[in-house]
């Protein structure tokens, strides 16, 4: 029972992190390791900078 609850909370926490973009860098590292393993990945700070810049190039929010 307790382990099931922990597992559920863990899942919710993962969704919250993903929803907010908190785990974006970890996802990027995973993507990088499988697709571009030959080049070194960006640092956390550098990745976050690029991500924010790209995010606001288009229509992001409406009325």
């Amino acid at each position: 029972m307790a382990t099931r609850l922990t597992a559920q909370l863990d899942k919710v926490w993962r969704i919250v992190r993903q929803l907010s973009g908190d785990d974006a860098y970890e996802r990027y590292l995973a993507h990088h390791a499988t697709h571009h393993a030959d080049t070194p990945p960006l640092s956390r700070a550098e990745y976050f900078r690029r991500r924010e810049q790209e995010k606001w190039e288009g229509v992001r929010r409406c009325c």
Binding site: V16, D22, Y25, A45
Partner: peptide, 8 residues
């Protein structure tokens, strides 16, 4: 700058 990418 302080905690890069720590959105939450």
């Amino acid at each position: 700058n302080i905690r890069p990418g720590r959105v939450l």
